[in-house]
Design a protein around this nucleic acid. Structure first.
Lengths: 208, 208
DNA sequence: AGATAGATGTAATAGGTGCTTACATGGTAC
DNA sequence: GTACCATGTAAGCACCTATTACATCTATCT
């Protein structure tokens, strides 16, 4: 059905794909509504049948990004098997790998300035992705000595922040801010290991 | 001399200030060259006498941001006095405080997609700001048990990444992605403390 | 099968923006 | 005092956003 007929057939999806291509090439700022329309081969007004405006398209791209992100992280975590520590390592790698291989998604999710609270579906997708991290933090928590054990939420926030910081600062190839003496993955893994060490992981619980 | 004469007198500075105002209001994407000119009260073409294009203005804003950032961080660190740990606490607070009180600068520095390598002055300013963090990591390193002590550069990268992650995800008032159960400052301080604990800070060096 | 309503795409258009070129103005160095 | 050069303006082109009126297709109902 590909553009032989008057109607495109699947313009909405095609526009999202075009947006991803363009964002990937020129960044979220360089992408324009008209460009996407041209790439797909429709008139500049056609996209407005499917998206209220450019921001609405961006929000949808971000929502899809979070959904893909959640699926990716969930697969990496895999229920924390065989053990939370190695699963957490996979999770970190998956986080950075996503940022690296899907820069268009990642950028639309975290850098394009899409306000999450305006779109409930977007908000929900974002929550679901974070829930994976939260879940991992829960599993890690049970391995910690009870004394002075911090809330799992805080652990999740720390790991998320460190991952996001590394991803945005160093994790995206040529767009990275600085050359690293190591890979972003190794940097994250080392950081998380030190952090878990600080939480007492592996240490024997001290008898009160 | 404020716009009584044909020549503005200080258009370059005025445009930068206008850019900061506009970025602060509408984000780095919503700021336009013409808007800045209008705000200052000159014709839309006037800015081109002082900046090659819109990106050049953004790059200059980012450069100034890094210079202010460096000065702020250096003042907070204050040579690591009275002791590296408390100085590091001040440094973290200063980092987040900067992101919060100067969102326009922070956004132009880290989120506007200004390529640092194209402008040597920008690159240098960015390096100088990071050097403060690196310096702090050096001071912390000397307090660590020698065994298994990681390179100071890595410590600096971890702390930077965590700070940046927290700042971008949670550290900017209404533009934050999520409500926190604590302040961003507390979150960062707790994270750094756990991390330093993991590095063995405060623990006695174990005899081989 | 044929009519028709709704969905989807186009054409035309208005207003804003980025940037360039030719021109106007005025501060300053000689 | 004048000539030069930095600085600002006017005008214009190309592009983008968004709207409105119109064209075309598709699905549904009888």
């Amino acid at each position: 059905m590909s553009r032989r007929s008057y109607h495109h057939g699947n313009l909405r999806e095609a526009l999202i794909q075009a947006a991803l291509e363009l964002i990937g090439e020129k960044g979220h700022a360089g992408f324009t509504f008209a460009d996407a329309a041209r790439l797909v081969g429709v008139s500049p007004a056609a996209p407005y049948r499917h998206f209220r405006d450019r921001d609405a398209l961006m929000a949808d791209v971000a929502r899809l990004g979070f959904e893909l992100f959640e699926a990716t992280l969930a697969r990496a975590w895999n229920g924390g098997k065989p053990d939370p520590l190695s699963a957490l390592g996979r999770l970190g790698n998956a986080y950075l790998h996503f940022a690296q291989t899907e820069p268009a998604y990642y950028s639309s999710m975290f850098e394009a300035g899409v306000p999450p609270e305006t779109d409930p579906a977007l908000m929900q997708a974002s929550e679901r992705a974070f829930a994976i991290l939260r879940q991992a933090a829960d599993a890690i928590t049970t391995k910690l000595p009870e004394q002075g054990r911090p809330p799992a939420m805080m652990i999740a926030l720390h790991i998320w922040s460190l991952s996001h910081g590394i991803a945005t600062l160093f994790g995206r190839g040529d767009r990275a801010r600085r050359k690293l003496p190591m890979s972003a993955e190794d940097l994250l893994e080392a950081g998380v290991l030190v952090y878990l060490q600080g939480l007492g992981l592996g240490r024997q619980p001290v008898a009160g």
